[in-house]
Design a protein around this nucleic acid. Structure first.
Lengths: 356, 356
DNA sequence: CGGCTATTTGCATTCGAATGCAAAAGTGTT
DNA sequence: AACACTTTTGCATTCGAATGCAAATAGCCG
């Protein structure tokens, strides 16, 4: 079947005609030899839009199929200066509380012909190391849903690696960002609390260095202040369930002006809070205590919780992040863009009229 | 500061002396030129254990630092035939219910000097495509925590790509596997149920094509049979919370011999089950209905649930998976190995004496 | 200091695909 | 059939680091 081999000078890989002997995979040269064409022809067959005749394509493809040839993405990356790899930086927290983010991002990257190179970032030093790793792997871009310092971002910029921030950004620096702005919903919730007769509230925040927490806390403070709720007690948590329970314990120690409503900057802490209130302190939520939070993760709507919360449109945000990174990879010099999604208030059932 | 350039014949990359002009990153040649040594010397400096003198190393490293040189992992991969990439295959389910698996695997891979190339696999065709992608990227190995057919596995074997299966394996084929065997704990739970007076039980399984579900269900059936509980009603769920609620509804429709205990093959369904029992049907769990399950995910121990469940040692399993893939990458021809971890019974509070 | 063995260093080639350029083949017109 | 013109093909080089081998240097001993 195979065309007789051309009488060229022996090309570099002519050690054997047997396909896939141990450890040896077919290269474009092997395919070329089998099809009786040049290596460039093979290369062009696998490059969409390249100049190639139908006859040739057919011949090459047949040989390629026979040898189970697939282009070597590593070699391609070397010559084209495009790895088609995107570094995805996540923290343990994000992954634990928002597993779907990572999943969605990966799916959309693949749709866009890119691969997700996953990195976990817990500390500042991690970020440092991760950026070096990503640089070594010639990633075409970075989607960062974890901590990153100014210095580190500056390093990436200097190296011309486009970065898309997921739910975090720098105010004093142009950058490409997708995030969720829940300010309207926060105001709405504040109004609801007011009309339900609440006049004292507490706030459970996340880590101080976390921007999402800081921003949400700021909005809550402002909105509560606007409706006349002052002296909001604050407890600093760490986004975890346990810190929610601890937060409630802390709030419960207040001897006077006990809050009738608690706002948690994420659902996980709200769940801890709610469980602690019900199981340990014997409160009835929402009758004795209203709880509201942020995120709208799946389990916040489980029957045990049914949190009143502000959801982030994670699916759309993930898609946007991928779209933005591909755009920046294609056109690195275009100006930065912020894509801001509104939150969505999920009514839930964790708030009620303030108790006397 | 820099040593004067050597009077060699111009090497390939001598276009400019300016480091990092737009889009241009320093290569080993640039470093070599700046340090006044050969490219091979630079290469050797970055290869641990290579033959290099201290003086030379110092000189090269200084130049490398000045140019912010980091070896190009893509180019290295091409010549060494080692990409240091490991494909990690996960399904949406796993990621949603076990986010820490992915996280831990990634962390351990990085410790081992490898990078995680993340792939999401939902369907059989996904797996097909993913395997081709992984092959194109020359991954050194695959950790599969998602579905994979015999054919697909055979393909990977033929291509000499080592595979480690996470919580799934083929009986009729040698393969490298890490999984959790909860059979002892299942027996223990069966005994407990018996001594608590339960004589009728129901089982909520996962999808039929899922091995974890099949195995767990099989163990449950056997153990229940052993203690004399027959005619176990079964409902086929899909691991989700919703299918847990649906499962309970189904079981509740039974008109006679209503079960007093329900075994769910994962925590998520057990939570759905429990919520449905309490919130919708008004049952008291565990007094009116005992519920046990598998996995031992973090939220199964939240105060609202406190499931009696069989935990998998995810941390150790993830570490083992990584260790095994690195071993197989180093020595592809060594024989296969199964690493089986015991489950751990978490007492919880979701079982009690059978109601009358 | 000569001679002899270790250790370093450099040279040249290699990995596999992409691509600019020139040569070759095909198409159409008169 | 000759010409111009387009399309297809092949040649040769390139990307950046690793490495076998030979040359150069260092270290050691008498």
């Amino acid at each position: 079947m195979a065309n007789s081999p051309p009488n060229k000078k022996p090309s570099k890989s002519d050690a054997t005609a047997v396909p896939l002997i141990k450890g040896r995979r077919a290269t474009s040269y092997d395919v070329a030899r089998l099809a009786g064409v040049s290596q460039s022809a093979v290369s062009r067959c696998f490059k969409p839009g390249a100049s190639i005749s139908g006859k040739m394509r057919e011949r090459v493809m047949k040989a390629a199929k026979e040898l189970e040839y697939q282009p070597n993405a590593i070699a391609r990356g070397l010559i084209t200066q495009r790895s088609n790899l995107v570094a995805v930086l996540v923290s343990g927290r994000l992954n634990l509380y928002y597993p779907e983010v990572l999943f969605k991002i990966t799916e959309h990257l693949v749709e866009a012909g890119l691969q997700a190179l996953l990195f976990t970032v817990e500390t500042e030093e991690d970020a440092e190391a991760v950026i070096e790793q990503a640089w070594q792997y010639q990633v075409d871009g970075v989607i960062s849903a974890s901590h990153m310092s100014h210095t580190q971002y500056a390093l990436l910029e200097k190296r011309h690696i486009p970065v898309v921030f997921f739910n975090r950004y720098f105010n004093d620096h142009p950058n490409t960002v997708v995030y969720c702005d829940p300010s309207e919903q926060v105001k709405e919730i504040a109004q609801q609390l007011k009309s339900l007769g609440h006049s004292r509230a507490a706030l459970i925040t996340g880590p101080e260095d976390n921007m999402v927490s800081r921003e949400r806390a700021r909005m809550v403070r402002e909105s509560l202040d606007e409706i006349g709720i002052k002296n909001v007690h604050e407890y600093r948590g760490d986004f975890s369930y346990e810190s929610g329970t601890a937060g409630l314990q802390d709030i419960n120690r207040l001897t006077e002006d006990r809050p009738t409503a608690i706002i948690c900057v994420n659902d996980m802490m709200a769940m801890g809070c709610m469980d602690e209130a019900r199981s340990v302190l014997g409160f009835n939520v929402p009758k004795d205590l209203s709880i509201v939070s942020f995120d709208g993760i799946g389990m916040s709507q489980f029957a045990s919780y049914e949190l009143t919360t502000i959801r982030q449109p994670i699916g759309r945000m993930s898609e946007a992040a991928v779209r933005m990174i591909t755009e920046r990879v294609e056109r690195p010099d275009q100006s930065h863009e912020k894509r801001v999604f509104e939150g969505a208030l999920i009514p839930g059932g964790s708030i009620a009229r303030a108790s006397a």
